[in-house]
Design a binder for these strands. Structure first.
Length: 344
DNA sequence: ATAATTTGACCAGA
DNA sequence: TCTGGTCAAATTAT
């Protein structure tokens, strides 16, 4: 297993290096076309995130895969992503029931996790971010020690009907009430896209509306619309809507620019080169940013399928065949997945 | 009537 | 034992 980890490490680093190179090239092109301040800022964030990710990976490689906690950098919108996983082989010689528990537990631990910080328009958004393209059901709220505001827990609405185990946690920033830290855990395996082939007009008042961008321009339009959504009065309760905006890489407005930079973090020494752009619910099912679906083929049903798809998506490079040694990772063969994305 | 949210209880891990 | 995460009954909304 260790060799697999090492190999993955090299692949991840390689991918990150490539990504950084591409970002630098993009930066170069931007510089030749008098980019806006926001574009420059975004570019620098992207590059710094790459560097951060690489430094984390390098340090981790030296430290024998010591888990590194996600540490979202300060910024307007930051995103980090990590994967809990382990290359350790463990004793699975327990009872069937124990093994089921073990698998369930590990499955949850193996789920990719990433955090996004979303700044909402203070004029509208103190009630929380809006639609991210998926339907969520709130299942809990908890006061967190040291945090000023409670943390809300959401799970996919279709957990029961489609066995989708994606969850997210939403917490308002202590410092800035307009900033929400959203932690996604797991990717959607539900097929919500079938319900949103034609994105309905986003109703700011509806918490459970969803839209799935079918093309980039539509994605941006929806995103922009959502980011300026007003979901009603605020502070009547310390709750927030189940929907929120998908934070974007793009510049969205002149006053409330929202950025997302991605830094890859590694949960437990496997790989962490996730791009929220590709894993975020609003885009994960569009395949717009993703490589061709055939990249997904051959990973029939495993957690690593998520990892692989995310990984392969990270570079956004034409480099296609990211054929991970699935069998060398600890997988859950029951994890639903199909070739067209994260859905079945 | 059905679905979503709220909230206290419970549980597992540190 | 404390804390974060989840469950599930009660409540509220549609």
């Amino acid at each position: 297993m260790e060799s697999a980890c090492t190999w993955e490490y090299e692949m991840v680093i390689n991918e990150l290096v490539q990504g950084m190179e591409k970002a630098k090239q993009l930066h170069f092109h931007l510089c030749s076309t008098s980019p806006s301040r926001a574009q420059n800022m975004l570019m620098q964030r992207i590059l710094s995130s790459y560097e951060k990710a690489l430094s984390i990976l390098n340090s981790k490689g030296a430290a024998e895969h010591t888990p590194a906690p996600p540490t979202p950098a300060s910024g307007i919108v930051e995103s980090s992503i990590s994967v809990d996983g382990s290359c350790r082989s463990e004793d699975l010689s327990n009872s069937f029931r124990d093994q089921q528990d073990y698998n369930a537990s590990k499955k949850r631990k193996m789920q990719p996790t990433w955090t996004e910080q979303v700044k909402v328009n203070p004029e509208n958004g103190l009630e929380g971010p809006t639609d991210d393209g998926y339907s969520w059901r709130k299942y809990g709220q908890k006061d967190i020690l040291g945090a000023r505001y409670p943390r809300s827990y959401y799970r996919c609405t279709y957990r029961l009907v489609q066995d989708c185990w994606a969850t997210k946690q939403v917490q308002r920033s202590d410092d800035d009430r307009t900033v929400f830290e959203i932690t996604y855990k797991g990717v959607h395996t539900c097929n919500q896209s079938t319900n949103a082939v034609v994105p309905p007009p986003v109703s700011p008042e509806k918490q459970e509306t969803r839209h799935i961008p079918q093309q980039p321009s539509q994605a941006l339009l929806n995103l922009k619309a959502n980011l300026r959504v007003n979901t009603g009065s605020l502070d009547s309760k310390e709750t927030m809507p189940a929907q929120f905006s998908f934070p974007s890489t793009y510049e969205l407005g002149d006053t409330e620019n929202q950025y997302i930079s991605f830094s890859a973090l590694v949960g437990d020494g496997n790989l962490g080169a996730y791009s929220p752009l590709f894993l975020s619910p609003a885009t994960s099912e569009t395949n717009y940013f993703s490589p061709a679906p055939h990249h997904m083929a051959g990973f029939g049903g495993s957690d690593v399928a998520d990892i692989v798809s995310a990984h392969a998506s990270t570079t956004n490079s034409p480099m296609g065949s990211m054929d991970f040694p699935v069998d060398q990772l600890e997988l859950d063969p029951n994890f639903p997945f199909n070739a067209s994305g994260f859905f079945r």
